[in-house]
Structure formats: structure tokens, C-alpha cells
Design a protein around this nucleic acid. Structure first.
Lengths: 192, 192, 192, 192
DNA sequence: GGCTAAACGAGACGGTACGTCCTGTCTTAAA
DNA sequence: TTTAAGACAGGACGTACCGTCTCGTTTAGCC
């Protein structure tokens, strides 16, 4: 996708700058949160010009989102242990673990907020993040559906809404996941 | 709180200005969304000074929240029809109806966004809005619990998370409620 | 002109800020010349916001011009000693004295340059500076014309061009006035 | 200087590019004036890279100056008709003719402006342009001095200042030459 | 013909200033 | 004392150019 036109004239995009910008953004969010984050500060910390950021990302939220996506630990593996109970619990445990990292939570909340305020970013956030998370869990649930483990009368899509809905709702209302039995209860509710 | 000291010297707070400010805020959100909303534009549209806004509301989000609360249609009544299926369905139908008013949806999304970015408003939003919605549904569910209609092994609080989680998740990811069978499916999942 | 509408609502223009801005501009030109002068630096030095500068002056050149005009020493008095030789010499000596102040010379050169590059400022510079200088000397020359002291066949306007032409030409080609006999020679040429 | 080392390896300077750059610069000054002229726009219009401009000219003003010098009509011939009146009138008429070409006037104003703002270019402009004009007229005036046609008590250099001073002063204050009797009057004043 | 070297177009880079917009505060005259 | 009006200090925005630096390509002289 990136190398479709491998030989254009002109200097190539600097991978160093790209990495420095993502790293600077993550550091700054970690230090002071997303609110006071500005393109100017990212550029200063990364040692780049502002234009270099504007050239490749439409908004600072896109920078943060790319940094988030690049975090390997986000790639919550799609579990396949043969039973919905086990797979769903594994998926939720991994999500809960992420949700306990304050930096990641701060970024998730900020990005979801930005997605509401900026329609353009909203679309990119859904396509680049929300949907990829749904498709991971959808794989798990469809396998379970094949085994007849899902409740009757509830579509896979609605179950996705239930799982991600609970996670996001608790993140956005500042009630951290995993401090109680919510994982067990969700598994109980869905995997009967 | 507003009429605690009815007889002070000096000019009284202008009810006209207050209404003009709330109306201007609602109009502007309706026209261009919440993102480009500024105190300056509210004041200009309302024909008031900026100071008059800052004097009575901590942030523009509080202005919008007050406008939202003033909409009477928000008062979704707590249904009590003797069965969880009926009560839950009534509650969800009412929510879905609200979620179909684009202006209301725009405001809900904006307020949830602002709650992420401004810690102070986040608290006021949870206390003044989120919790009041939860307590309404909690009444319904606790009645059902008394009748033994709730699934085993799932607390009322988690069921609240499921219902509101699904609603908010769909609102925030721009997938409007009620365009499909989600109400039926939620009732099926929870009220067995 | 400033007090035509003395009673509008709203805060009045701050005379402190105005003075601080003019002073900062003069200082900065004195320290590093006009080239590196920026609105940002003027604002920083003056302790004002940039907007306060942009509110009252169209360009930084207008700021510098106002500072120049405000210098009382610029008000070269219109001499009236009864003879053209004496009046013209007095006018030129005063101009030469000014032209020996490096700060003033730097400002004059910069403003004339800016007048070439920015058509809008060019007009304001002619109206606000060039013409006021011409009218001062025109008074002197017209008195002399009444006494028949001017050369035949040369209009007052052309004599103004000669006097100011020589001064500006020497300033702009970096050949300081007064290092030689140019004052004597101009008097000789014009007042015969 | 350009052909001092005729046989180096490597590609030779492209005459096409050089001409395209000079032409682009002249066109752009003609269209929008010198103020908004940038190296970037010259390169875009000429279809060259920016580097090709920076390789051969120190500043954009030098590009414009080279374009000006290349205009053959600049070579005002040094008249020699035996009388100062005739020679001076011929010189001034030629200058006035140039001063009526709006494009040339625009360039002259721009170069004089740049000479004020950029010390380096100021030197090159004086050496390469101002002085060559002075030396042309100096030849005329020194011939006249030999014939005793110059006013007493006024040096040739001051007379040069008078003639060029008037021309430049009128150009820079946007009062075009030749619309009035200024040529006649200057001849009257100097050649008595 | 192959080799080295310079100039070419294109365009990304770090950096600086721009002029605009908005924030939250302050100051005025009127109500 | 509140109001509308509006100026204030401050700070981020996104843009435009600067002058430099790669790129891959083209054009030359030399072996």
C-alpha cells in the first residue's frame, strides 16, 4: 500500500522523523495528558518542523492514533481455545489489562472525544480502530456461533455492541475495568 | 440556589439573557456541531457579552448541558408494568426515540466528549446526567430482581453497564439506535 | 479626530500599551535594525498580545512610522529669517543633523523600502510623512518666491524634488549627509 | 569568469533554465509586483527546482537585477552634442522614457527597496547599477565643466546627486517622471 | 562504452514568522 | 450589581517561505 509508487523523484519521507513524532506524542500525553498536547510541542520535542507533521497527519489526534495502533501490545491476540467461555474470558482479560494502563486509557478517552468533535477524525477512528477491534472479537464469536454456544435470538453484532459497549462505557465514565467481577459477569451473560 | 437571596442591591440576573444564551448554544450546535462552538459565538448570537456567560457557567459545556436538561422530553418515565420484558422494552424505546433526534444526539456526543477532555466538567456530567439515568433504570431492574427475572450471576450494576454501554457505544460510534433489532435482542439477552 | 465619539460602551484603548509598543519597536530597530523586526518580538518586548498590535496598525511598518512621527525632534521648525539662504540652510542643517542619527537613518531607509514593497503602506507613508515634510519646506520656498529669491523657470515643486531628492538619494545609497559641502552647494544652487 | 574553467566534467549549466528563471521573475513582478515574489514561485513558474536558483544567485533580488541588466534598452547612451543643455536634456529624456515603462519602474523600486533591507545586495546594487549610471552622467558633466557650463560653487558629484536624486525620489514616491516640466526645469537649474 | 561528476526536476526537511481565532479577564457607560 | 460592548495579555492554530538536503535522472568529459 505504501510502495505502490516506489520511484518518484524527490527526497523520501524520513522514517526517523516519523518515529520521533510518534514517540514525542506518546511521551507528552504520558507526562501531561492529552489536553495540553499541541502540534507545536510535538514538533519541538521530536526536533522536527510543524509542517512535517501537517504534511503527513491531518490532526494531532491522527498522530496519537497512529502511535496507539503501532503499540504491539494492542494486538490482543484472537484466542481460539475451543470454547466461548475461555476465548471470551481471554479477550476480556487482555482488554482489562490494557484498560489498567493509565496512559492507554488517557489516549482512548481522548481519541473517542476527538472523534465526536471532529467528524473527519471520527471516520478515520472508526475505520482504523473501532472496526479492527470489532473484527477481532467477531472472529471469536462466529466460531462460537458455529458451535452453537451463543444465546438464541441475539445477533453477533449485538453481542459485539454489548462487549465493547460495556468496556467503553466504563472507560468513558471513569470507572476502571477489572476492579470488580465484570469480566465474570459478562462471560456468564453471553456464554451460557 | 438561584432564588436564595431574592432582595440584593443591584441589577438582577437577566432571565432574557439566560434564555438567549441557551437558545443560541442549541442553535449553533444544531448548525455546525459542537466542535466549532465557542463562547464568543454564543455571546454574539445571543446578543450578550461574554462576561455574562462566564459569570453564570463554568464552561460552554455547562451551558449546553443546562440547555439539554431543560428539554422536558429528557424525562424518560420509569416504567412499571409488572414485567421486566415490558419495562425494559419501554425504557429502551424511549431512549431510542431520543436517539433519533439528531440535535439531541449531537449534544449527547459533545457532552460525553467534553467530559473526557475537561475533568471538572466530567464530574458534573456524571453527577448531573449519567447517574440520574442509571438510577432510573436501576429502579426498574431492582424491581425485576425482586421478581427473580434477572439472569443468575449478573449484578444489577453490570446490567446497567450493558444497557447504557450499548446505547452510548452506538451513539458515539455514529451508529444510530433503532435502525435494527437491537432493542429486541437486548430484551432477549437480559430478560429471560 | 480621536474623540469624535467619546462615549461608546466598552473598554477604551490603552494608552500604556500604545506607548509600550512604539517604544519596543524603536528599541528593537536600534538594537538589531529593521530587518529582523517582527510583530511577535514587538509584542513580547512591549508585554502585549500580538492582537493588540494588529488591532491598531495594519503592518509593523506603520508602527515604526508612528514612532518616527512622534519623535518631537522630527518637527524640524519651519525657519523664517527673512532670507532664503538662511532659511534653506537652517532647514538643511536640521535635516542633516537628523540624518546623522544612525537609528533615524535606519528607520527612514526601512520605511522607504517598505513603501515600495507594500502598496498600501506606500500610500500611508506618502500621506503621513513625505507630504508633511514637503509642505514644511514648501512654506519656506513660497515665502522666498514672494521675495523673488527663487531661480527663474523652476517651479517650487521641482525645487522640493531637488532638495528632498538629494537627501533621500544619499540616505538610500548609504552616503551620509553632511560629511561634505553638500549643504553649501545646495544653497548655492537654489538661492542665487 | 564563467568560462574560466571550460573543461570540467559534469553537466553544464542549463542556459534554458537560466532564461526561464529570469523570464519567470520578470513576469511575476509584472503581474503582482515584487512584494509577493518568492523563490518558490519563480521556480514553479520557470519549471525548475529551487536549488537551481540558489545555486546561481544569492537572493531573488539578484535574479531580478540580472534580468534588468539584460534588458538592452537600459544602456542609455552617453550623449555628446557639444552643449550641456542638449546633452543633459538627452540623458533625462532617455531616463524619462525608461521611467514610463511600468515594468521597469516596478523593478527599479523593488531593487532599491531590497538594497535597504539586505546589506549584501545593497553593495552589489550600488556597484553594479547605481555607480554605472553615475559614471555615465559624470562623463557628460565633466565635459561641460571643461567648457565652463556648470554653475559656480557646485561640485560635479553634487550635481549627480541632484539629477539622480530627483529621478529616484519621484520614482520611489510614485510620481512618474515626464508628466510635467521637470526635465525642462532641471536643465534650466543646472545648465545656465 | 563505461566511469565519474556535476547539474537538473522534484520534493521533504528543520525552522521562523505570519495573521487569525479564541480564551478568560478587565474596564467602560448605561440600566 | 448586572448588563452589552469591546480592549486586553496570552497562546495555539494552520499556512507560507526560507534555505538545505536527499532522491533518481540527465548530460557532459575522460578513460
Amino acid at each position: 500500500m505504501d510502495d505502490a509508487t516506489p520511484s518518484r523523484p524527490g527526497r523520501r519521507r524520513s522514517e526517523d522523523s516519523r518515529r520521533a513524532i510518534l514517540a514525542a506524542a506518546v511521551e507528552l500525553v504520558g507526562e501531561h495528558g492529552y489536553g495540553p498536547l499541541t502540534v507545536e510541542k510535538i514538533a519541538a520535542r521530536a526536533g522536527t518542523g510543524k509542517q512535517t507533521i501537517y504534511r503527513w497527519w491531518p490532526t494531532k489526534a491522527d498522530v496519537v492514533m497512529e502511535a496507539l495502533v503501532e503499540k504491539a501490545d494492542l494486538h490482543i491476540p484472537v484466542p481460539d481455545d475451543g470454547s466461548l467461555r475461555a476465548d471470551l474470558r481471554a479477550f476480556l482479560e487482555a482488554s482489562v489489562a490494557l484498560g489498567r494502563t493509565p496512559q492507554v486509557v488517557a489516549i482512548l478517552r481522548a481519541l473517542m472525544a476527538e472523534a465526536q468533535l471532529d467528524e473527519g477524525f471520527g471516520g478515520r477512528f472508526r475505520d482504523g480502530f473501532i472496526e479492527s477491534r470489532r473484527s477481532a472479537l467477531r472472529t471469536v464469536l462466529e466460531r462460537a456461533a458455529g458451535r452453537g454456544e451463543l444465546p438464541d435470538g441475539v445477533s453477533v453484532d449485538t453481542l459485539l455492541d454489548v462487549v465493547f459497549g460495556v468496556i467503553w462505557y466504563r472507560v468513558l465514565t471513569d470507572r476502571v475495568m477489572g476492579a470488580d467481577a465484570v469480566v465474570d459477569e459478562l462471560v456468564t451473560l453471553i456464554a451460557r
